[in-house]
Simulated scan of single mutants.
Amino acid sequence: MALLSSNSKWPTLPDYFHDWALVDVETSGLRPGRDRVLSLGVLTLDAHGRQTGEFSTLLNPGCDPGPVHVHGLTPARLAGAPIFEEVAPQVGALLSSRVLVAHNAQFDYDFLAHEFARVRSWGPVSRRLCTLALSRLVGPVTPDLKLGTLAAHYGVRQERAHDAQHDVAGPRRSHGCRTAGAKPVRVMPPSVVRTAARHRYPLVSRAAARVPPRPLPVRASPSLASPCR
């Protein structure tokens, strides 16, 4: 989503002085305690809106990937992917000390928190900003607030819906980032960002995630035909 403006400068207000981690996940279902992350994209920005890192990967969930007709992630595509435990340290490093930004951030945060809990770890997220909530405050004239609808409204080309590696670019532009060769964008009003970014969220413990105390299977073991649990 891009908010086009002739002003390409990143704001100098202290409300924006955060490091950011823009996140999108694709999952095997809608229940974080049962379903799994299949694809993950993370893009990091510094306090001046400059991109500092990027990571994306498919993930082998060790179970049926769910609605393939929605996300296109077939068992064959996921069979050779790493399990979350293998990428957890890298993902944790990207999220640590940054504000997590996502469209419907509750969804992405809950799934990531459960994935970290499954590997006996913590999701290092204490603050997040939801671009869906942000859009409700800004109030664009659109029939709905889906990421694809907002992208079209703000003139951002969305080539592949339900693709974590691609969708993470939508919140990047709505959030006010400018990348090489991209059109300049205008950031949201400071009061809106301040309200959203200051909200703190507790970490999810292993007990809260209801993860059974058993070791995860090795990478070659998961069966993509079995149901998630």
Rank of each mutant, 00 (worst) to 15 (best):
A197K: 09
P212A: 12
R210N: 03
L150E: 12
G29D: 03
V68A: 06
A164V: 05
G176L: 04
L30E: 13
P140Y: 05
S174L: 08
R128N: 06
A2C: 07
S191T: 13
L22W: 04
P140C: 09
A225N: 10
R118G: 11
V138M: 15
L58V: 11
R34P: 13
L132W: 09
S8Y: 01
T179R: 03
A133F: 14
A21N: 01
R178Q: 04
A81C: 09
E85A: 09
G53L: 12
L137Q: 11
R128K: 12
L112H: 09
S226Y: 10
L4V: 06
Y154N: 09
V168M: 10
G80F: 00
D64T: 05
V25F: 00
P212V: 15
T52I: 02
V156I: 05
P82L: 00
A2K: 00
N104M: 05
A105K: 01
A152M: 10
V70W: 02
G49F: 02
T74G: 03
A220S: 09
Q165F: 14
R50V: 08
H114N: 02
P227H: 04
L147Y: 11
V138T: 07
V168A: 11
P171W: 00
H162C: 04
G53A: 13
R36D: 01
R127D: 12
P143M: 00
V119Y: 00
Y109S: 07
A169H: 14
D15F: 14
A196Q: 03
N60A: 10
P222S: 01
D110V: 07
R160V: 06
S221W: 08
A225E: 12
S56F: 05
R77Y: 14
D46G: 08
L43C: 11
A105E: 03
S226T: 15
G53Y: 09
S126K: 15
S5R: 03
G148I: 07
E26V: 05
S56K: 08
A152V: 13
L73N: 11
D110Q: 14
G170K: 14
T12Y: 00
H199R: 10
S56I: 07
R136P: 08
P227W: 03
S5A: 07
T179L: 05
H199M: 12
R98F: 03
S8Q: 01
H48Y: 02
S135V: 10
R50I: 15
A88M: 10
G33N: 08
L203N: 12
A196V: 04
L145I: 03
T57E: 08
T27E: 02
H166D: 09
K146G: 13
V42E: 03
A81Y: 04
G29T: 07
P75S: 12
A76Y: 14
L94V: 07
R136T: 02
S221M: 10
L100T: 04
K183L: 15
L94Q: 06
V87P: 00
S135A: 15
G80D: 09
P202T: 10
L40C: 02
A208C: 13
V204G: 08
R128W: 14
A225Q: 06
T195A: 14
V101L: 05
C130V: 02
L145N: 06
R36P: 08
V193F: 14
D167C: 15
R36H: 11
